[in-house]
Design a protein around this nucleic acid. Structure first.
Lengths: 341, 341
DNA sequence: CTAAATCCTTTACGCGCGTAAATTTTTGAT
DNA sequence: ATCAAAAATTTACGCGCGTAAAGGATTTAG
């Protein structure tokens, strides 16, 4: 490993004894050159460290090998986790993923998309903020860049949508709760940022009706992404004013549930499904932290692997030229039965 | 807003009535052209949407405007939060931050640095994995790229180090615990990934000695970044075998404490500082989740703002040519007194 | 062994912009 | 109005690589 520094492809081509255009061909697709040629190049690569200048490369390509991944809030471990799995799959497919977070703000989201456009990415995996998103900005972006929407659906936007089946989520866990105790109330934010929340509320109402129970939706105030605190404050309020009609609460998402658990603790309410427990609490999302709440949170988990695999493969099909009608794919979740409900 | 599409700077210059070199000058530093000229360019910019091609720009610059931010594990909200504040400061300073995570693996970390090198960043803010990092790879990288190390110190590596004052962290919270109840035991991983853990253990031992108490270190097995689970399993073991000599446990970090809280819950042990509580548990880090554990976790919080401000400003000084001797800056933390201890 | 097909080489141009040098225009103070 | 300084313009080259065209070399099929 002499590891001589090479300045450009010209020099590297000279050293490897191959012409520059052929070397260029190799870097764009190693299998496009004859095995013997390929071996000579790779031998030179072992001796001397050289990588094509990505700026020069991208300047002369219509489509870059960059994939943008945009999530609304990277501080939320749920998004961090899904971003991680997406990233990994992109790398394995030979692309260069770049990660962005809107940090919960629509202005940031628009700015991120603007910067992303300048990167001329081959494609983008976008989880929109939701309600607060600048819809026009999203549409304009999707017209210019092959974009696959995930997590939070926006009708007919982009190439396709891949996310979790919120109706199945809520129906499934509501069914579980009904079968194992009192029918659940539904605990949610009054003005959720994410459209999934509306699907979940409606699914709850429908499920309760089909099970022959009355539905009780408890909506609490609060704006923004400090969801645990909204759940805690709203939980205190709901508990103090007896707004939960039964001893079982199904939360719209895990972060809200975590806040509610804190409120229960602060009020001395024992949470769980034992005979001495005062209230059952369940969440939805399979948040990485849900295993470690006290008590561990019963929830329904996203199928991270299937969601990311489906999203990435749909995007790659589009990048490679396949034209398919807009389609929404929703992946079922798996119930995680734990001690909280 | 006619928003005509412009193909290149040549076209844009023609439209704005200014020569291309001057327009180029403007984009590199708007204040470097005469106010009247600047106004004409910005007027054209309002009419027609145009941004210089970043690939062509970066090809012809020695140093790009890119800043790399590398953290060991983005799924950990602590790192996500610090990354967010760093990102924001870079943007405000006119740079383009790009975020990377080593996903807890040294191989990934080396790969990230390799890709980063190809981006020719103006500078890098790097939080190394720690013990498992490929030290040689880090050193090689720091020779090529102006790199500021944060969070996890590596002696004399890069431009400088900025992080939290682990000694102050542990001393301060140990003091608090001693003054308000039984002296704490120290709960940690036997082979922690992060060197901060060693400083904290040593600070604990020193603090206990100076306070006139015996120190009790409980080290538990477990590898990797599933720290809550390690804390939970290790907690069960320590509790079952009576390894905690007092009723107070200071954990090496919040994630471990969160796992221990779960173990306590699962064993029916009441955590808190009330007369009916069996055990006090404290953490260290001010993890975003610590407010919502049950009970809320007493901990000592990183000063995210000061750490990120110090780190970013030190990097920018170096980028702008200031040569300063290697220096380690350690920021004090703030005690968050909550119910767990 | 010959012909056809494949792969490589040479040559050449272009991408969009940074940047330097020489020249012209504008500015601001006298 | 005069003149030096400041700023803009013109001209020109180079960055590192993609890519096309034409011809030569090598491989594969028959």
């Amino acid at each position: 490993m002499t590891k001589t520094k090479i300045r450009n492809m010209e020099e590297f081509a000279a050293i490897s004894g191959i012409s520059r255009p052929t070397v260029s061909k190799y870097f764009n697709d190693p299998s496009s050159v004859r095995p013997k040629t390929r071996e000579r190049i790779e031998a030179a690569l072992r001796e001397h460290t050289y990588r094509p200048n990505i700026y020069a490369v991208n300047q002369n390509r219509k489509l870059t090998k960059t994939i943008g991944i945009v999530v609304p809030l990277l501080v939320d471990p749920y998004f961090a986790e899904i971003a991680r799995t997406l990233e990994e799959r992109c790398i394995r497919a030979g692309y260069r993923p770049t990660l962005f977070s809107a940090h919960g703000s629509a202005a940031h989201e628009a700015e991120v998309l603007d910067n992303l456009r300048a990167l001329k990415p081959a494609g983008v995996l976008l989880a929109p903020l939701g309600r607060t998103s600048d819809r026009a900005a999203l549409e304009a972006f999707c017209r210019d860049v092959p974009t696959l929407i995930f997590d939070s659906s926006v009708d007919e936007l982009g190439l396709a949508f891949v996310g979790s089946d919120n109706v199945q989520f809520t129906t499934h866990i509501a069914d579980y709760l009904c079968r194992t105790g009192e029918p659940p109330c539904f605990f949610e934010m009054k003005t959720p940022a994410n459209p999934n929340a509306h699907r979940r509320r409606q699914a709850y109402i429908n499920a309760m009706e089909s099970f022959g129970h009355t539905s009780h939706v408890v909506s609490v105030d609060g704006e923004g992404w400090g969801i645990e605190e909204i759940g805690r404050l709203g939980g205190h309020d709901a508990l103090a004013r007896g707004r939960f009609a039964t001893n079982t609460v199904l939360c719209s998402n895990d972060r809200l549930a975590i806040g509610l658990l804190t409120a229960c603790y602060e009020r001395g309410l024992r949470v769980g499904r034992g005979p001495d427990d005062a209230i059952r609490v369940a969440g939805q999302d399979g948040h990485p932290h849900s295993r470690f709440t006290c008590p561990p949170l019963t929830t329904i988990s996203h199928d991270y692997d299937t969601v990311s695999a489906t999203a990435v493969s749909a995007l790659f099909r589009a990048i490679e030229g396949s034209v398919e009608p807009w389609k929404s794919t929703r992946i079922e979740g798996k119930l995680l039965m734990r001690d909280s409900a």
